[in-house]
């Protein structure tokens, strides 16, 4: 297929297509976009993300958070402030904002503030080595040398995958245990091989 140009709109569509079309149950997908900092070094920063959430498992709502009451209050406060920032209103009475913020939602949100130097963290390693990093299993994540993998495990993830592409790295995370799939990696290569 012809290779499409990189833009924000198709990025979101590609992330959504990747997750919604997958056989496996992925919780989120993030595209870490490569750029250069003031010194000319390669940095991977937030490009875009698609949060699907956790499997319902018939309980009516997503898996609840293991966080403390104080932590939940903190998350809700941040979410209210972010909502105000986006909507432009000073205060929000939106019930949806006051719903419990799950661990994976929080992990996804915090990811928006992160960046990785070339070779640093799971995304940086994947990009620097031009090879995929697939970490599956609570122990593997907990014992990883990468802070992001350990953080992911604390927030309930069982699988984190980073697949390099021309302009960055596609990261997928899941609360399920998912083993390596060449089908997924091929899909990333097709969907994220941008022309520019």
């Amino acid at each position: 297929p012809p290779v499409a140009a990189f833009n924000q709109e198709t990025l979101q569509q590609r992330l959504q297509a990747l997750i919604e079309g997958a056989r496996e149950s992925w919780t989120y997908a993030i595209f870490w976009q490569s750029s250069y900092d003031y010194s000319g070094a390669t940095v991977l920063g937030w490009g875009d993300g698609y949060y699907k959430g956790e499997e319902d498992k018939g309980r009516g709502k997503s898996k609840s958070s293991a966080s403390s009451v104080a932590e939940q209050e903190h998350r809700k406060k941040v979410l209210r402030e972010l909502n105000s920032l986006i909507s432009g209103s000073a205060s929000s009475t939106d019930d949806a904002v006051d719903e419990e913020v799950t661990d994976t939602e929080w992990f996804f949100l915090v990811s928006m503030t992160q960046s990785f130097v070339n070779g640093g963290g799971l995304p940086g390693q994947a990009f620097f080595n031009s090879s995929s990093v697939w970490v599956a299993g609570t122990d593997s994540l907990a014992n990883s040398t990468c802070e992001r993998a350990r953080q992911g495990q604390i927030f309930g993830l069982q699988t984190i995958v980073c697949i390099p592409s021309e302009n960055g790295v596609v990261e997928l995370g899941s609360t399920e245990l998912i083993f390596q799939s060449s089908d997924l990696m091929n899909k990333v290569r097709v969907l994220f091989n941008f022309s520019n």
Binding site: W46, Y51, F108, M112, T113
Partner: peptide
């Protein structure tokens, strides 16, 4: 929140909107 760069606002807005949808459908 003020630290969230302008470029990430679109992702954040989308996340919040989809979250509302999920809550309403729950």
């Amino acid at each position: 929140p003020s630290a969230v760069p302008q470029a990430r606002k679109a992702s954040l807005a989308r996340f919040l909107e989809k979250r509302k949808e999920r809550m309403m459908n729950a």
